[in-house]
Each structure stands twice: as C-alpha cells, then as structure tokens.
Design a protein around this nucleic acid. Sequence first.
DNA 1: CTTAGCACTCAGAGAAAAAGAGTGCTAACA
DNA 2: TGTTAGCACTCTTTTTCTCTGAGTGCTAAG
Lengths: 356, 356
Amino acid sequence: MELTERKKQVLRSVVDLYIRTAEPVGSKAITELPDMKYSSATIRNEMAELTAMGYLEQPHTSAGRIPSAAGYRLYVDELMADYRLSMDETKSINTAIEEKMQQVDKMVEKVAKLVSQATDLPAISVAARSGGATAKRFDLILAGQGSVILVIMLSDNQVVNKLINLPVQVTDSDLKILSALLNATMTDLSQEEFSQDLLDRVMGSAGAAACLVPVIMEFTGETLSRQASTNMAVAGQMRLLGQPEYRDVDKAQRLMSSLDEDALANLPAVMQNANGTKVLVGPEHVAQELKDTSVVMTKFDIGDGLQGMIGVVGPTRMDYAKVTARLSYFAESLSKMFAKPEQPQLPTGQEEAKEE
Amino acid sequence: MELTERKKQVLRSVVDLYIRTAEPVGSKAITELPDMKYSSATIRNEMAELTAMGYLEQPHTSAGRIPSAAGYRLYVDELMADYRLSMDETKSINTAIEEKMQQVDKMVEKVAKLVSQATDLPAISVAARSGGATAKRFDLILAGQGSVILVIMLSDNQVVNKLINLPVQVTDSDLKILSALLNATMTDLSQEEFSQDLLDRVMGSAGAAACLVPVIMEFTGETLSRQASTNMAVAGQMRLLGQPEYRDVDKAQRLMSSLDEDALANLPAVMQNANGTKVLVGPEHVAQELKDTSVVMTKFDIGDGLQGMIGVVGPTRMDYAKVTARLSYFAESLSKMFAKPEQPQLPTGQEEAKEE
DNA sequence: CTTAGCACTCAGAGAAAAAGAGTGCTAACA
DNA sequence: TGTTAGCACTCTTTTTCTCTGAGTGCTAAG
C-alpha cells in the first residue's frame, strides 16, 4: 500500500488533533477541519488503510483512531509543521537564561528548571566532559579553629569546595605555603596523573600542613573523575500530573520514580554521536521504564570541552513541534552564551545583581 | 464532659488505626485491638462522646470516626507513644549525613533530599542567618580571555562564585592586586556597610582592574542580603502521591504547586521563637493552601550564626510519632556535625573522598 | 474514485438494586 | 451504675442492568 499525499494529510490531522484533545480521533472530526475536502466515508477508508499500515491504532472497535508509535515517528520526521517561536517566547527564554546563570556550578540544576518551565514538562539537564578536566587553581582558607576550606577551580570554570577538619592546628601562613605548592605542582594534571609518586613528592615539600595533602589529593582525584562522568539534574517531575494520561496516580508515580534515576542515565549515551534535536518515541526507548513516554533532547556546547544536554520527558502524545522548537532554541541560546567569553553575556553588568 | 483515661485510650486507638489504614475507624475495629477489654457497644458510647467533645468526626452517619484537628492536636501533645528509632534508622541517617555533606554550599538541597528520603514525605530545609553574614575572603581567578571568576567565602563557610565577563583585558597580576585590596577593605563588612562611599574609596585604589569593582560590590551586597534572608530547598514533592489522600491528582497538584512557593516561606517564621520539634496540624496553619495538611518541623544549629530548619509536609493523617522522631534525630545529628569544628566530622578523613 | 446510507459494535453514563458497615438506642444484665 | 447484647435504621459502596451515542465497515449508487 502506498502512502499517498492524502494519507499523509489525514495522518497529520489525526496526530495534531490527538495531541490537542487527548481523545481518539474519529473520521467526522477530521472532516470538520478546514482544508479537508473529503467526506467522512473517504476519510474512514483512508484511516482504515493507515491502520492496516501500522500508523494508527484503534483502542476499541467503536472508537476513533490514535497514532501508533510508527505514526508519531512519521509525524515527527516528516509531517509536523514547524513551530515558530513567538517573540515573547524567545524573549522569556533569553531573560531566564540571563538571570539565572550566575553561579556557574549550579548550572545544571538551573537549566533543568528553566527547560521544564519553558516546556511544562519534566526536564533533564546533563553536563558531561568529553575529555578530562584538570584543576586550574587551589585555594585553602582557614575557617575557624582547626578547619580548612579547600576551593578548587576546575578547567571548565566550575568551582568545588570542601570543608576539611584537621587533627592538628595550622596557621594561615602554613596554608599560604601549601596552596602555593599545590598550585605549582597539581594544576593542569589529568586524573590519571594523580599517582602515589606525586603524593610523595608533594608531601616532601609540604611543610607544616602536610597532613592535609592526602585528603586534598584524594578529593581532587575524586572530583576530577566524578566530573568526568556526568553531572545531571531533573526538574519539574510534577508537571507530568498536568497531562491527562497521568491522571492515574499509580502510573504517574511509576514513571516519576524512574525519572529520578538510572533510566535517564542512559539518555546521554543516545545523544553521544547524534546531532541537533532528537526525538525518541515511546517503544523506541532504551530504558524499559520509559517505554510509553517520549523524550525530546538536544545537545549544546558549554565550551572548555564540556558537553551539555537538555531534554524533556512526556507522554507520547506531547506537542512535538512546540517542544522541539523551544528545546532547540534553548540549546542555541545556551551555546551562544557559553561561546563568547570575551563578550559580556549580560549587557555590561548592571543586571548582574539579580539572583534567584 | 470529662476526658477520662478510657476516652483517651479510645482516642489514641482511633488515631493510631486511622494513621495506619486511612479508613474511618469503627467501634468493632477498636474492640479487636489488644488491651481493649470493652465491648463494641461501650466503645460506641465513648466514641459518641468523643465526637460530641470535638475530638472525632464522622464523615457520614454509617461510617466510622476519624480524628478532628483537635483530636490530632491532643494526640500529638499527649497521647502518642514515643517512637524509638531502630539502630538501622539512626545508622542510615548518620551515614547519609556523613556522605552527603561534603559541599558546604549545597547543604540545603541535600538536607532536604535526605529528610524527604528518611520520612517518605516532601521535605523542606531552610538555612537562615540570625545576624548578617560578612564576606571572609575574596578571590579573583582569570578564566580564559576576558572573563574572571569571583569566589567569595562567607563568614558561615559558604562559598559562592560568579563568572564575570569583562569589556577589557586584565592580567593575572591586576587581579592579584585587586583581590588583595578587596580582602583588605571589604571583608567583615555587613551588608549595610556597602555604601557608595566605600565604592568610591575602593575604586580609587583599584588600579587596572577597577572596572570590576562595581560588579563585585553589587554582587557581594546582593549575596549578603540574599543569604541573610533565606536559603531554602524543597525535595521529594512526588512522595505525596504515595499517600492515599492524594490519589486525586487535582488535589495533589494543587498542594504540590504551593509546595514550591511562598506558602512555605512563612513556616520558618513559626519556628522563630519555638524550640524543639513543632507540629502544625491542618487548620492551625498560617498558610491557607496547607490547611488540610500537617507540618512537622524542627530547628538545628549550623554554627556561625546560621539557623537551620528542617520540616516535612504531609496529610494530617501522617505518622506523627515516627516523623517527629526521625526529624528530631536528624536535627540533632546535623547540629552535632556542625558543632564540633575542632573534631573531624568524619573519623579522620579517609572517607572524605566519597561523594554523591 | 467518492459518497450516502445503514447495520453493527462497544465503551460509558445512569438508574436501580443489593450488600455491608457502622451507628444509636433500648433493654437486660452484673 | 456501668456494661453489653440485640436490633432497626441509615447511608455509602458495589454490582448489575439498560440505554445511548459515537464511530465503524461495508455496500451500493453517483
């Protein structure tokens, strides 16, 4: 059987309507659409054939049709109309990004939150390093009696810090000496280069605060390897409840619990060598738990060897056109923001102050 | 009418059962409890009187009784049995705290997450400063061409950082000079002391990187005032769905949306001058939206003038004994952890590395 | 190839009936 | 005087049944 132009038009109409109403679509509803010049009988025939071809399904005999996974696939790949973002939409996305991206290390959480807001669906955001990070700078700060704060700045401009409690007293100048030493010897090293040998070498010249060195080295090593894997956040799970397919609390709950965890860990892998925006429809999923939801995701560039990914999860019946458009725009804006380090990302810094 | 010992016993039984089953409790069910030596008829009489006294209510004539707000109140204040935490529970709380509290500045989020996990209810965690914070140390780090990372360490050991993009080029030594200046002039100042005057003064001696000063000052001021107000996180909203009273998605959604926002902002105020663990039952609430949920909350000490608060939100029918016990223990452990700066919070630092 | 017409199917709404849980009251009992 | 057995009554919940209407597939005519 052939997929004629008219069949495509019918399929598109069914998907469009179903996305809007969440109810099975009957031949009559299609007839009433503008641009549809055929009678319900004709549409019925077409629909019957589309069903036979696997693009539509029927919940039961006397119901209308709903798109099958294959139907959505076709819709996403060929049929759906481009969704043009309105000025308002682009503007609100830009403002959000500008206002929220202040603290570098909370980036992932904030992006997830923003994307979720923009799409009204649960969102996930991941930052992963392709190469390995290195430490760019160490600072040691005395914090009260006997505890020290270690601040490490990574090559990707993330800042991590750790409170270390000491068994012995150290002075401010001890720390100055040690941090100079750390900066001299331990910066720009990849995780693999943190060897026993290095530890011995640093310990040798560490002076009074030597007891800190093993802790610092271990933490640094850990940090570098952790960052190397992934760093991800999920936001807006509750938004699923807004979708009629999740009126059933059990269903919603089942999905939600998987939204927190490993199921999502696989997603970045899917994006690995893909480019642009990718849509995973229902059963095409890697993760079992997500097999009746769809995922839209896209990559963006953070610079300094960091890869970002944002995505949203929703019912298969989600508004792919809108979601894809917003997500792509988001990715674009984020890439742009990270891409121009010479150029202030905010006009010139008057708005810097606004936070949260 | 008098609240006899037997009436109390009946009331306690009703609340206990209702907490466990979420179903109205009938006289028969009470009879079947061990330690209940009266017939259902007697219990019925008692229940009728408890209802008249306002401690119980009847959803409809032919249903059992459920506790009224007053009933819960009495239960919480006098009736409920102490819940003894098992070794497992205390251990898992301690391990969680030890493992997760590495990054000082992500404390609030992590505590919220942990508390929610421990109670299986949505949790909120707040850190608020009684006095004002001050900056303890400034660092400026050159990050690629034309952008600088500002790291501020606050008097409460929190570390905040901000990426600043520059309209002009600065060198590493410019930054050294400027940060020395900042550390000399801007540390230990409360928010109010950040005046135009100070700005002028610092600008005057700032040298090459002077253009950074306004941005830094503004950010610092903002940070101090923001930290001074509150810093809060909510976690585990979805856990509400596990409660039978929220099988109704609309209801759940309504509550959830208020869980994110202002409704909670009032809670810390309630704790202001209270001590220990506090229970707010349903209609006793400040926040309209929460009027048919209960909140259990408790304070803990972060040290350095910081006050912490943790709390959970749940149906009025929550297991107060268990929740209160866990929450109190949590608060205690956290206080302990923050209270001993001379003493390593982890044995001696071998485990420091574990993160996430 | 398209369309009008029609018999047929089946989910969902509603009404009616049946079941069951729990009560309040009375009267007997210790 | 406090306790309990017994019973009629109330009202929710569950089940069963009927009915309605949307939507279909097929046939035959345009």
